[in-house]
Design a protein around this nucleic acid. Structure first.
Length: 411
DNA sequence: ATGTAC
């Protein structure tokens, strides 16, 4: 599904065709941001009649994006904003959460079982608690698998270094994950924008991140096989739900760090917020088990965001409920170059200093030079043809575009 | 995407 103006990678199409040919695959649709992943396509919705494939969800279960709409006033700007933002991401989590007497495993359990609600429970301020409670969990999200004390498997408690996954809560991670302060540059659907608290030149905070090492542990635990109507299938779904809750809670905290740096960490200043998950599988009745990998649900009227890059706007849209697209939309612009290609080609084209600047000439907060090249805007497809394709296909309609002011990629 | 080891 793409206009001719959307560049499409041959390998990615071949990967999509391979999945479409798998046993029990009843429908497969590639989004215009389709690109190749580790043996599986990214930017696709894949429906199976009876089978769940954990490896099609991949190692970043629950990955998604959160949008927070703010007013126009920016109290902190320029270098002070950059300094404060860096400090906000370097600060320990207990600046925001009261974790006295709460060990890492207890925190992990709470977030696993209750997601953002757990953040509200531990929040040091009523403002953070209100923010964490502002969004209902997605309707498709089942209960997380509960574990008795001591029963939590090592694989879901400890990373490869023996550290509890709770230590990654509130961190961005690597790859294409980021937090961003942006500004609304255009509004296409004024009524929908108003309902989401978006106003022209108003600020927008974006967080794109996932369940960190926890999703990886889940992928390793379940391996490449398919799960068919067994107890294992139910167990995987309940564990996936835990990882999704962790990821949602993580995005809440990332947005809160951005809000505190900007000087707007007050629930009264927040005009709207929503969250979107783009790596998961859910039971969608007649359609079967819909796996979305780099692809978000887009039922009629729901708010969603299609992420641009640090040099291109992200589009806030409304879902079109298009069955031909499995009620789904692209998750972003999609890669045009592999990470290796981006490093090689873009080092010729751009200086080390220039890759540290984003579209508006402000610095990108990122200490990893390799990552600055890998995630350079040139490594991504153009966003406009992606959005145009989604509209023409009836997958979603434009509401507003937000352009990046400050991009954060601190680990 | 993530974490680890080289």
């Amino acid at each position: 599904m793409a206009l001719e103006s959307v560049w499409m990678e041959g390998d990615a199409v071949a990967q999509l065709a391979r999945v479409a040919g798998m046993d029990d695959c009843v429908f497969a649709v590639g989004m215009p941001d389709l690109h190749s992943g580790p043996g599986i396509p990214i930017g696709a919705a894949l429906a199976f009649g009876r089978t769940i494939h954990p490896h099609l969800v991949g190692s970043d279960a629950g990955c998604g994006a959160r949008v927070v709409s703010l007013g126009k006033k920016l109290k902190v700007r320029g270098e002070a904003l950059e300094r404060r933002t860096r400090a906000a991401f370097e600060a320990p989590l207990d600046e925001h959460l009261d974790l006295d007497g709460v060990d890492d495993e207890a925190l992990l359990r709470a977030v696993w079982e209750r997601g953002a609600e757990a953040i509200a429970e531990y929040a040091r301020t009523e403002d953070l608690a209100a923010f964490a409670r502002a969004e209902a969990e997605p309707a498709w999200l089942p209960a997380s698998r509960r574990f008795a004390d001591g029963e939590l498997p090592e694989a879901l408690r400890l990373d490869a270094r023996g550290r509890c996954f709770a230590t990654s809560l509130g961190t961005i991670g690597g790859g294409n994950h980021f937090a961003e302060l942006g500004a609304v540059e255009s509004i296409t659907d004024p009524a929908a924008a108003e309902a989401l608290g978006l106003q022209r030149r108003g600020h927008v905070i974006l967080a794109h991140s996932g369940s960190r090492g926890l999703g990886r542990a889940l992928a390793l635990r379940w391996g490449p096989g398919g799960l068919v109507e067994t107890e294992d299938q139910a167990t995987y779904l309940a564990e996936l739900a835990g990882a999704v809750r962790f990821a949602i809670a993580n995005r809440v905290l990332l947005c809160w760090r951005m809000l505190s740096a900007r000087g707007a960490a007050k629930s009264s200043r927040i005009r709207g917020t929503f969250d979107l998950v783009h790596n998961f599988v859910s039971d969608e009745g007649e359609q079967g088990w819909v796996h979305r990998k780099g692809c978000a649900p887009a039922e009629q009227g729901v708010p969603l965001v299609v992420l641009g890059s640090r040099g291109a706007p992200s589009w806030i849209m409304r879902g079109g409920g298009q069955p031909a697209c499995l009620c789904s939309v692209a998750h972003g612009a999609g890669r045009r170059m592999t990470r290796g290609e981006a490093r090689d080609k873009l080092k010729q084209r751009h200086t080390r200093a220039s890759v540290k600047q984003n579209a508006v000439g402000r610095r990108v907060l990122c200490d990893d030079t390799k990552l600055l090249y890998e995630e350079h805007p040139d490594a991504y497809k153009a966003i406009d043809p992606i959005i145009e394709t989604l509209e023409r296909a009836g997958a979603a309609t434009r509401v507003a575009a937000s352009s990046p002011l400050l991009t954060v990629k601190l680990r």
